[in-house]
Simulated scan of single mutants.
Amino acid sequence: MRLPITIGLGFILSLSMNIPAMSESRVQIEQLSARHNLNSRKLNFNRILWNKKNISSYRYTLSNSCFCIPEARGPVVIEVRNGKTTSITPVNPEQAINPEFFQKYNTIPKLFNVIQYAIQSQAFSLDISYNHKFGYPTRINIDYNSQIADEELFLTIENFEVIP
């Protein structure tokens, strides 16, 4: 008689440990939607500002504070001429970098695309700062999923300059 009770209790306890997490409340969903809407508006405004400036040759320093190998972090100086990336070089000449790791971030329009993707994929957290004069992003912090460690993205864009 005790064996069926023990098995039954074990089964019930195992179910209680595997109960799926409660879904987000309606308020949380509405707040998330409002944040994404605000982020979309800021992105569109700054992308338009950038496009109006019609800058095709520029350079900037990019740092990637990711949980990744040092060759993918930088800081690196990215130079763009006539809309095409011409060089990606480390700020510290003794530092080894792999330009392949910076392909998603090697132009300002690509940085806007990173932000757009985060908005479209409904990233859990998105913290973006833009340059008020030119519209390019100066900081991109994205946490795609609060339940996953080490998938966050932390980019810093500094020392922007238009080049002739």
Rank of each mutant, 00 (worst) to 15 (best):
N98R: 15
A118C: 08
G83R: 04
S125V: 04
T6C: 08
N39I: 00
T156L: 14
V91A: 07
S25D: 04
M17R: 07
G74P: 07
S25Q: 07
S33A: 13
G74K: 04
K42E: 11
I48G: 01
K84V: 13
A149W: 10
Q103G: 10
R35H: 13
S16M: 14
L15Q: 09
L15G: 10
F11I: 13
I69P: 07
E24T: 09
I108W: 06
F160W: 02
R26W: 01
E161N: 12
R47H: 09
H36K: 09
I7E: 10
C68R: 06
C66L: 14
S121Q: 15
N46Q: 05
F160R: 03
F134P: 00
N44E: 13
Y144Q: 13
E158G: 00
N145G: 04
P70G: 00
V27Y: 11
G10A: 13
N64M: 12
L43H: 05
N51L: 11
E79N: 06
C66F: 12
H132P: 15
L49R: 13
S125H: 10
V114M: 13
P93G: 06
K133R: 14
S125C: 03
Y105C: 09
I119H: 00
I140D: 02
Q147F: 11
A118N: 02
N54D: 13
P90C: 01
L153V: 13
L38R: 07
I55K: 01
I55N: 09
F102W: 02
N141V: 02
L49A: 02
T61L: 11
A72S: 15
S40M: 11
R59S: 14
I12W: 05
V27G: 04
L3K: 13
T156S: 14
R59F: 08
K42W: 06
N44W: 05
N46H: 15
D150V: 04
I55D: 01
V80N: 00
N37P: 02
E24M: 12
V162M: 06
Q122W: 05
N46K: 00
L62N: 07
K133D: 12
T6H: 08
S87V: 02
I5Y: 10
S33F: 07
L111F: 03
E152K: 12
N113C: 01
S63E: 13
L126H: 02
F11W: 08
N18E: 03
S25P: 01
T89E: 15
N39A: 10
I115T: 01
I48N: 10
I140V: 08
S125L: 14
I7R: 08
V77H: 01
E158W: 02
N141Y: 00
S129Q: 14
R47Y: 09
F124R: 05
